[in-house]
C-alpha cells in the first residue's frame, strides 16, 4: 500500500497541503478531484517524492519513503507528469524505451524492446512508433508518455506491489481517448493488481472508472469515498462553488451522473 499519513507541505509561508491522509491500495483506481489550486498536483508531487513534506510521513509497501533506494522505487512506482519538456528529436519508440531504463541491467535490450512494443500497442500508439516525438500533437504525446510509464512498471516487481501516479492523464485528449486512457489504466489496475492514483477534472469520468474519489479543497482532503458517496450536489456545490444536480447514468444506474446548471449570462438575472 501507498500510505500518506498526515502530510503537510509548505513553500515559503504558503501552505499547499494541510494534514492530508490517504491510502492507495493495490488494484484500485483512486481519482483525485478538486478546484484549481486545491493542491492536487502538490499532492501528487509529494507522493512521487518531488516535494518533501515538512510534517507527516509517507510509506510504500510497508517501508517509509526515504528508506527505498531510487532504483528500486522506479521499478514499483511510475509517475506521469502533466506535460513533458522533451525538446529533442527522439523517436516515439525511444521515448517509451526510456521507461525501461530502470530495468536495463536486469533485462536484455530485446526484452525491453518487446515490452516497449507491447506498451505502445496497449496505448494505441503503435502506429506512431517511428515518428519523431516533437512532431506529435498534445494528445498523442500524452498517450506516448503513458506508454512510457506503463513500460516502466510493466512486470511484477517480485513480491512488491506497483503504483501508478497520473497527473491529469486526460487533459489533452479527445472524448474517445479520454475513455480509452482510463479504460487502459482501469484494466492495468485490475489485471496487474496495481494501485492507480489519477488527478482528474471531469467528475463524470472519475465516477465511471474510479473505485474511490478523493476531494481536495484548499490543501485539505474533504472526503474520500465511493463515487456514490462523493457525488452529492451539496458537497460539489460547496467545494467547486457551482450549482449542479446529480442524476444517475442511463446505462449504469449505480453510477452517479453530474449535471451542471447553466450559468446566467453576466448582467441578466437567472430565473
Amino acid at each position: 500500500m501507498l500510505i500518506a499519513d498526515q502530510i503537510s507541505v509548505q513553500i515559503g509561508s504558503k501552505s499547499l497541503l494541510k494534514q492530508v491522509s490517504l491510502t492507495l491500495c493495490p488494484g484500485e483506481v483512486l481519482a483525485v478531484v478538486g478546484p484549481n489550486g486545491a493542491g492536487k498536483s502538490s499532492l501528487l508531487r509529494t507522493l512521487s517524492g518531488e516535494l518533501s513534506p515538512h510534517s507527516g510521513s509517507l510509506s510504500l509497501n510497508g517501508r517509509l519513503l526515504p528508506g527505498w533506494d531510487a532504483g528500486q522505487l522506479a521499478k514499483m512506482r511510475g509517475v506521469l507528469p502533466q506535460s513533458s519538456a522533451l525538446a529533442f528529436r527522439f523517436s516515439v519508440r525511444d521515448v517509451v524505451l526510456m521507461g525501461r531504463s530502470p530495468h536495463r541491467k536486469t533485462h536484455s535490450h530485446n526484452q525491453n524492446l518487446v515490452i516497449t512494443e507491447q506498451a505502445l500497442a496497449l496505448t494505441d500508439t503503435a502506429h506512431l512508433a517511428g515518428r519523431i516525438y516533437t512532431t506529435l500533437s498534445g494528445g498523442e504525446r500524452q498517450r506516448v508518455q503513458l506508454a512510457r510509464v506503463l513500460a516502466q512498471i510493466w512486470e511484477p516487481c517480485g513480491e512488491l506491489q506497483r503504483y501508478l501516479l497520473l497527473d491529469e492523464p486526460t487533459s489533452a485528449l479527445d472524448l474517445a481517448h479520454q475513455h480509452a486512457v482510463l479504460a487502459i489504466t482501469r484494466r492495468f489496475a485490475d489485471s496487474q493488481n496495481t494501485g492507480v492514483l489519477a488527478i482528474l477534472h471531469d467528475l463524470n469520468l472519475a465516477a465511471l472508472y474510479a473505485d474511490r474519489i478523493a476531494v481536495l479543497h484548499d490543501g485539505s482532503l474533504i472526503v474520500t469515498d465511493t463515487p456514490q458517496g462523493v457525488l452529492n450536489s451539496s458537497l460539489i456545490q460547496q467545494v467547486f462553488q457551482y450549482p449542479v444536480s446529480i442524476g444517475s447514468h442511463p446505462l449504469y444506474p449505480a453510477c452517479p451522473l453530474l449535471i451542471p446548471h447553466r450559468q446566467a449570462p453576466p448582467g441578466i438575472s437567472a430565473r
Binding site: S48, R77, P81, S84, M98, S101, R104
Partner: peptide, 20 residues
C-alpha cells in the same frame, strides 16, 4: 548516456526513472 537521455525528459522524470 542513460541518465542524460532521461534528463532530457525533465529532471523530475529522470528522478522517477530512478536516476540520482
Amino acid at each position: 548516456a542513460y541518465p542524460l537521455n532521461a534528463l532530457l525528459l525533465g529532471e523530475a522524470e529522470a528522478g522517477h526513472l530512478g536516476f540520482p
